[in-house]
Design a protein around this nucleic acid. Structure first.
Lengths: 340, 340
DNA sequence: GTGAAAGCGCTAACAT
DNA sequence: ATGTTAGCGCTTTCAC
């Protein structure tokens, strides 16, 4: 019945032709415009159904200036924390008619910049991102040039118009550190990413506060704040644990760091909860199933992802930029025993 | 210096005006067309640089019919296996100038269908997908109507034009089952998703083959092939382990199933490697770090993701559709001891 | 209430 | 080698 060959897609033109009406009338019916007679509506709807017409989102976007597309840039989607965030975020965006373009920045500032630039060319309506670093002028410039709403994940960049979902690591880490100090530890190692991101600074502030409140001195030589990747943590766990006197407790910030550290400890035959008191910041799948049970500072990744979507949707609706703060919770388990 | 207000974006028109040339000349310079004089190239490049012009990918897509965008539909990105696949796949696609639109189907055929439809309206150049089920006529119809290249992950759908990355689970599961049978187990439970997906059928075929070769009978009452989600596995682990006589060994297919089963066993106080011989199909982050060490059938998720991208890129280049088969490897560890 | 026409930003004929 | 023009599929004035 449809006369056109099956080479191209069915366009609004085909529908108009079949219904014997103008293009604009079809458009009006499709968009639910009030000024359409029932007769017109019926004719067009018949043609739409018969032809299986679906509006081209690309053309609509070009016309309207909105792609209903959100860029999502993180370091590495295979990090379970980000995966959980992405899952909840995508679900929420989808519920509101938005699609997510996923990009890994692979921990590289250069890749991150390129990703932002490409998203701009794709005319995304907004970007949700966890930046590799907050102090890169090039990334900052790129972001300003975006001229699209931005939601940052656990980052604070000065002089940037953006919403943000930030985690209150401070209290959780404070409790964790206090727990260790109370048990008598003072030689406490801390392995995580650099202080050019909010999460590290905020965690360190909880760490320092606990030491200060206990009237104890931090041993700076036991800190390794250089990278979130497992490799960095692996190497520095080995180095730190070879020191004498060696640390009696270890805190690792982020799943990458935790993973590298645990692997190193495993290889060195150091048992957590016995030879070393251990606390992980952030949990991961199957966290609760294994022995030894690991003491942790937990945050709800699902809630973070959904909240990021909400903040984005709010700005897209014309609302104000906001900052949401998510809680953390320290739970002492077997792994933070021993060590002394 | 730029006369235009900062309301809209800089278009090819602005560049042409500033350089005092025609639109098409700018277009030619941008696309590296051979027929441009050095003088023209210089003038245009100056204007492009001065204005910071970047072609609108949306407009280019509408013109060219190619969005350089690939849809990626999986059940749940927070499943670590899919996250690893997605990571490698996105990296590879990005390297070739393609972006990935990520969509979770949440284990729902209806959501999956909607996702496909939306991707079609977005005019993606192709879709990479791990279907919820192979036997849904509606999804099949949707996919056929896509008229864009498709790469399936571990799925076989009859009568569908598609490339696929499939895993040879058979051999891995065969070895795992043989290992259990050799140890004297016959009451072996198997918990995983339904047989309306290739991965389950292929795994079961290895399972059955091992029983056949050993001259033993499968106890059908000990199988639970109804869902990949943790909840299903949790419930059925409880039920199966309450049977008498209860199974002496358990195999779980997929990270969701494994997760639910381990949680249930934990709650029931059943120790794997001692009270029950246990084998997991697929590994997850930090797999190797914990005790008890878990026997597993491993596959390389990173390689699967990269291969999916390759197959897609090849078809987009006009190459043939292909099926790649990835290996699995069984490794016996502590968890598959005991139970008898 | 409906139709005709302009235009979103771009590229590829087609002229010259 | 460069400019002019049509058109990708859609929406939105603007007439009638």
């Amino acid at each position: 019945m449809p006369e056109e060959t099956f080479t191209g897609n069915i366009t609004i033109r085909d529908v108009a032709a079949r219904a014997g009406v103008a293009l604009s009338s079809v458009s009006r019916v499709m968009s639910g415009h009030p000024d359409v007679s029932p007769a017109m509506r019926a004719r067009v709807e018949e043609a739409v159904a018969a032809l299986g017409y679906e509006p081209d989102l690309l053309a609509q976007s070009l016309r309207s200036g909105s792609t209903r597309t959100i860029g999502f840039i993180i370091r590495d989607i295979s990090n379970p924390l980000y995966a959980l965030i992405a899952r909840a975020c995508e679900q929420e965006l989808r519920r509101h008619g938005y699609s997510m373009i996923l990009m890994n920045s692979d921990g590289s500032i250069e890749t991150e910049s390129k990703n932002f630039l490409l998203l701009r060319r794709r005319r995304v309506d907004g970007v949700i991102a966890s930046l590799v670093a907050e102090d890169s002028p090039s990334v900052k410039k790129t972001i300003v040039s975006l001229r699209a709403p931005l939601v940052l994940l656990d980052r604070e960049v000065k002089g940037l118009q953006a919403s943000a979902v930030i985690t209150d690591h401070h209290d959780g880490v404070y409790e964790a550190t206090k727990h260790l100090l109370d048990a008598g530890h003072t030689k406490i190692s801390f392995i995580t990413g650099a202080e050019n991101v909010y999460s590290t600074r905020n965690r360190m502030s909880g760490f320092k506060q606990a030491f200060a409140d206990a009237g104890k001195e931090i041993n700076e030589a036991l800190l390794a704040l250089g990278g979130f990747d497992a490799e960095y943590a692996f190497v520095h766990t080995r180095t730190l644990m070879a020191k004498k006197p060696r640390p009696t407790a270890l805190i690792t910030g982020g799943i990458g760091s935790t993973s590298g550290a645990l692997r190193a400890l495993n290889e060195m035959g150091i048992k957590i909860g016995k030879d070393l008191a251990f606390v992980a910041l952030d949990e991961w799948p199957l966290f609760d199933v294994f022995s030894p049970q690991i003491s942790s500072v937990y945050r709800d990744a699902k809630a973070i992802g959904a909240e990021a979507a909400h903040l984005m949707l709010e700005v897209l609706k014309g609302g104000p930029q906001k900052e949401s703060v998510m809680e953390t919770k320290f739970t002492a388990r077997f792994s933070s025993e021993g060590g002394l």
